[in-house]
């Protein structure tokens, strides 16, 4: 086949697939959200916004992302730094650290349910140590902040791994000579981390933060597993409107909200962590 045609032939399936199953459905979502029987309407958006759970869902989702993502970043940076300093057993430790990467948020929710539920391991430990007398109902509907904390812990536990993997591979791309040069010029370990690792890690940080923030906006199964509907989040509400309330228009309006904050977050990270042309490794 002619070399000018071949690349297009090879790209055709992927392009068609993405156009039909990615671009077109998102147009559909927008149409569903903004049109009714008489064309364009904001009625679905109003229905969504006036529902008492909307503000709570939006607020909790944003708060969750704002708390979880920085924790994951700190934890992942520490893990990545520790791994980079390891001389032996590096690959085993890396494997252990990256295990949660393969788990779904549902699995992570169930795992932490085993710990936090009323007859769970945390209560067993606390009672066993004599700190409390009777097991506490941590995940009850009146303890929404405890549920929130449990979701944060479960998410930090599960999804730090992916951030760490991205950062470790990013650190692998930074040549050792830069550190040696900085050391010769008198930079201590902390200065080297701040002045060399972090700036040169910007592309990886960007990838990791975009990925993680977006997934935090999509948080769903872990919240239902640990808190049922006590802690409303956007994705959960989308699901509710689609199924329990059978209103696809409002569900799509919710989807538009998630899409909007996702794009806003992406643009923010692209801007905040941009690397000037020519300053790349």
């Amino acid at each position: 086949m002619h070399p000018k045609v071949l690349p297009y032939v090879l790209l055709l399936p992927a392009t068609l697939f993405l156009l039909v199953f990615f671009v077109y459905p998102f147009v559909q979502i927008a149409l569903l959200a903004f049109t009714g029987a008489e064309g364009f309407t904001l009625q679905h958006v109003q229905t969504m916004a006036s529902h008492w759970k909307f503000k709570a869902a939006l607020g909790w989702t944003l708060l969750l992302a704002a708390v979880v993502v920085p924790i994951q970043l700190m934890l992942a940076l520490s893990m990545a730094t520790i791994v980079s300093k390891l001389e032996s057993g590096r690959s085993s430790i890396l494997y252990i650290f990256s295990i949660p990467l393969g788990l779904s948020d549902l699995a992570s929710g169930i795992i932490w349910l085993a710990i936090f539920e009323q007859s769970g391991f945390l209560n067993s430990l606390l009672v066993g140590l004599g700190i409390i007398e009777r097991p506490i109902l941590f995940l009850g509907y009146q303890n929404v902040w405890v549920i929130f904390a449990a979701v944060v812990i479960a998410e930090a536990w599960r999804a730090t791994a992916i951030v760490m993997v991205i950062l470790v591979s990013g650190m692998g791309l930074i040549p050792k000579e830069y550190y040696e040069a900085a050391e010769v010029f008198g930079a201590g370990p902390w200065k080297r981390f701040v002045k060399i690792t972090l700036p040169l890690l910007r592309p990886s940080l960007q990838t990791a933060l975009i990925l993680r923030t977006l997934l935090a906006f999509e948080v769903f199964a872990v919240v239902i597993t640990l808190g049922g509907t006590t802690l409303p989040v956007l994705m959960g509400e989308t699901f509710q409107w689609q199924f329990a309330l059978q209103d696809r228009h409002v569900a799509s309006a919710y989807a538009m909200v998630i899409l909007a904050i996702s794009i806003a977050a992406t643009l923010f990270y692209l801007w905040a962590l941009r690397v000037p042309k020519g300053a790349k490794i």
Binding site: L18, F21, F22, M235, T238, A255, L259, I263
Partner: peptide
Amino acid sequence: LVVMTRAFPLPLLALPLAV
């Protein structure tokens, strides 16, 4: 096109695709 998919909450595709 490929990179853009990252900025979208993909599970939401299920809603229109259901139709």
